[in-house]
Amino acid sequence: MANYKLLKRLERIIYFIKTAPGISKLELIDKIWDTTDHEVSERTIERDFTTLKTDYGLDIVYDRSLRGYRIDDDAERLGTFFKFAELSSLADLYEAGLKDYKTFQKWVIPDDSSAFKGLHNMQKILQGITLSQKLSFTKVNYYQNSRTVYTVTPLRLKEYLNRWYLIAVPDSLEEIRTFGLDRIENLQVLPEKAKLIKDGEKQLHQFLDVIGLNYNETDKVEKVVLQAQNKQIKYLRSLPLHHSQTCVEGENGWGRVTYELKPNYEFETQILKLGAMVVVEKPLWFRERIAGHIKGMNELYT
């Protein structure tokens, strides 16, 4: 496992190559020096390239047409790496002196997540995943005001909108389900071995086709095209809604953004959040659905 100093440098390398394909090794060294205040050599960079490939599955290659380096773009691996780097950055805060609540209040303005609970369950969940053991817990259903006891085979932890979810298969099923950690009580790691899940990896792969959690609203991956203001495209490039996103700016102040995904409810909410800065061009049924949401909202204010 890389220490945080190394991980921080690796994250910088990926960031600079991702944002400036064709960057030279010397340019990369200069940028790392400027942003981390640590001097590195060409040999260090070469070792880092090897570490990224062997430990994280991220391949940095020299592209002769660009006369510099680029990364073989694997959205899933990149996303996982950046999330790992983000969570590991907490260690850097600690080393810098963030050791008490008063210091935390002075340095950090957190998001409003005071109602969230469930992070204490992470250790047991990771234990169950690592040791391939079943978990038992009580799931609280806020909508139905009920509690249900589950025994599950845990597969993954997934984050969405600053909330963590357990992806698991209940004993009575063969299909994956998601459980919010904030709704899990009485979690226990059982001595019973986890069951083998038919097409487990294939089922997990379904999350790549959607934004968020709802992968079974439709079976069809579609090409969604948006017209978007050029100014908004800059923000979308900085924080993509989905790994399939491609952006092209236009000459009249409006450009085009395309996605290859299953248009689910979470995607609809992301589009609606952009307001008048985007317009759905196609498919027609999705354009009409978004228009229906806008019409319904407008009627509430008239």
Rank of each mutant, 00 (worst) to 15 (best):
V210K: 01
F116M: 10
Y215K: 12
D59Q: 02
R177F: 07
L274C: 06
F207C: 04
N298Q: 14
H120A: 12
K83I: 12
N121R: 10
T269F: 01
P21V: 06
L157C: 07
E95K: 14
D55K: 01
Y150E: 07
Q188T: 08
I109G: 02
I14L: 13
V278T: 01
V221S: 02
H242V: 09
D209Q: 10
I125G: 12
W164K: 12
T148Q: 15
K134T: 13
L181N: 07
G212W: 11
F267E: 05
N121K: 07
L7M: 15
I32T: 11
V169D: 01
I23Y: 05
R183N: 14
V280K: 00
K282E: 13
I233W: 06
L78P: 00
P191D: 04
V279M: 08
N145A: 09
V225L: 15
R12I: 08
T178L: 07
E217R: 06
H243M: 15
S24M: 01
E39C: 06
K234S: 08
P263L: 12
E222H: 03
A2T: 13
T153E: 07
Y94G: 09
L131D: 15
E42R: 15
K193F: 01
E39L: 13
W164H: 03
P170W: 03
V152N: 02
T302W: 12
L26Q: 13
F179Q: 05
T51M: 12
W254V: 13
L161H: 15
L6S: 11
L26M: 11
G212Y: 03
D199N: 09
S113Q: 09
G275M: 04
T103M: 06
F104M: 13
